[in-house]
Write a protein that binds this DNA or RNA. Structure first.
Lengths: 147, 147
DNA sequence: TTACTTTTGTTGTCATAACAATAATTGTTT
DNA sequence: AAACAATTATTGTTATGACAACAAAAGTAA
C-alpha cells in the first residue's frame, strides 16, 4: 500500500463495488423468490429470530444502525405485518418488538436465500482466505471504533 | 464456512458494519476539515480528477452507480459549484461533465483526508493480508457479475 | 427513407442513512 | 424532593440507491 491510487483502490474495495454487487444479487434473489424484504429489514429480522421481543435500542446495537433508522424500519415492517410494537411495562420509554406469525414463517425461506447467495459469492475461495478477510475486517473495526 | 450462523457472519462482514464504520469515519474526517462532500460525491470527483470532461455514462460505469444516481449526484454537485454540465456537440444525447475551479482546488486536501482515513483503518494489518482481501473481493465480484 | 433498436439522460416513487433537534421517561446527585 | 443528566424513541431534513417509466437522439436494417 504505497501510492495514492492503491489507497483509493482499497477504499473502493471496502465500500464500493463488491458490497453493492452483493446487495444487488441478494435483492434480486429475494424478489425472484417472492420475498418482499429489503436487506435492512432482513438484518432486523435476523436479530429478532434470535431474540424476539427485544427493544429498538437493542435492534439498533445489533444491526449497527442508529435509533432513527430503526424507528423507520420498524414503521415499515409493522405496515408490512412482519413485526408489532408493544410498550414495555417496566420502562415506559421503551418499546418491545415482536415477530408476527408472518415474520416467523419466512425465516427458513429467507435464510436459505441468504445462504445460497453467500455460497454463490464465495465459490472457489479457500476457507483460509475467507478467515483472513474476517481477521482483517475485525482489525479494521477495531481501528475505526476508537473514533 | 459450514453453519448458517457463519454465513450470516460473512454477510455482515461484506455489507454491514465495516463499510459503514469506514464511511462514518471518512464523513467525519471530511466535516472536521471543512470538506463538504459526501463519499458518493467524492467517488465522482475521483473519476473527474483522472478524466475531466467525461460523460455521465462514463461516470456511472467508473463509480459503479446507475444513471439516475449519477444524474442526481451531478445535480447536487452543480448546485454546490463543484462541476458543470456542458452539452456534447458530437452527440446531443450526452452531457460532458467538467470540474470547476473549486472542484479542482479541493483535490489535494480531499485525497489527503481519504488516504489518512485508509491508513488509519488498516493500521497494523500486513500487506500480505491486504492483498488477500483484494484477491478475495476480486473473486467475489467475478462470482456475482455473471448474474 | 422508414421502422426498429439501442443509448443517454431524466423524472417519479419508495426505502434507507446520517444527522440534528425534541419529548418522554428514568436514573443520579445533592 | 428537586435539579440535573442519561436513555429511549420520534420527527424533520437532506442525500442517496434501486427500480420503473419515459423522452430524445443516434445507430441499424429493411
Amino acid at each position: 500500500m504505497q501510492s495514492i491510487l492503491e489507497y483509493q483502490d482499497f477504499y473502493n474495495l471496502l465500500t464500493g463495488r463488491t458490497p453493492q454487487a452483493f446487495n444487488r444479487v441478494l435483492n434480486k434473489n429475494f424478489r425472484q423468490n417472492g420475498v418482499e424484504l429489503t436487506k435492512e429489514q432482513w438484518s432486523i429480522l435476523a436479530v429478532l429470530w434470535e431474540n424476539d421481543g427485544c427493544s429498538q435500542q437493542y435492534l439498533a446495537d445489533k444491526s449497527f444502525r442508529d435509533r432513527p433508522s430503526v424507528t423507520r424500519l420498524i414503521d415499515n415492517m409493522e405496515k408490512d405485518g412482519l413485526v408489532k410494537r408493544k410498550p414495555d411495562v417496566n420502562d415506559r420509554r421503551s418499546n418491545l418488538i415482536f415477530l408476527t406469525k408472518k415474520g416467523k414463517q419466512i425465516q427458513e425461506k429467507v435464510m436459505n436465500l441468504v445462504n445460497a447467495t453467500v455460497e454463490e459469492s464465495i465459490k472457489g475461495i479457500s476457507v483460509e482466505n475467507i478467515l483472513t478477510v474476517k481477521e482483517v475486517f475485525h482489525k479494521i473495526n477495531q481501528n475505526l471504533e476508537v473514533k
